[in-house]
């Protein structure tokens, strides 16, 4: 399993635990600065973006057909690195800024929220840029 795939899969597991922890605290109605309902979108995105999407990215990077160039024959890996950084930076920003904006709207949480949104979007584009040519039949030498 290549290093990048391990990074994606391990990060995904961390988000799974975080998402479940947020939901468990909400279900227990632990008193906090926010109504737990305000954290529903955060829970869903920790789960679907942090866990599911990141796991799909890691598995796809690892298992999809190789294209025959680059150090691991998986093509240019730079967009996959970029996608990992952007996805996680965006998700962390969103996780902080969305409840903050709900609690006390202002230019700071608003700016961070918008940054988080578009960083995640750019991550999706970067990974798609890498994976699109690998959604193909198996690579055979001389028939790339």
């Amino acid at each position: 399993m290549p290093r990048l795939a391990r990074l994606y899969v391990k990060t995904a597991f961390i988000y799974l635990l975080l998402a479940l922890a947020v939901d468990a605290l909400a279900l227990m109605r632990v008193p906090g600065p926010l109504p737990w309902a305000a954290l529903r979108p955060t829970y869903w995105h920790l789960f679907l973006v942090g866990w599911v999407t990141q796991m799909i990215f890691g598995a796809a990077y690892w298992m999809f057909p190789i294209v025959g160039y680059g150090p691991t024959k998986r093509g240019d890996e730079r967009p996959v690195w970029v996608a990992w950084f952007l996805l996680n930076a965006g998700l962390v920003l969103r996780t902080v800024a969305e409840p903050w904006q709900a609690r006390a709207a202002g230019p700071w949480p608003a700016g961070l929220l918008v940054a988080g949104a578009w960083l995640q979007w750019l991550a999706g584009l970067a990974f798609t840029w890498h994976i699109w040519p690998r959604i193909r039949g198996w690579y055979r030498r001389g028939r790339a």
């Binding site: 969305e98 700016g111 918008v114 988080g116």
Partner: peptide
């Protein structure tokens, strides 16, 4: 991303 931008 657009929906989140709208929240801000």
């Amino acid at each position: 991303a657009l929906m989140l931008t709208y929240k801000a």
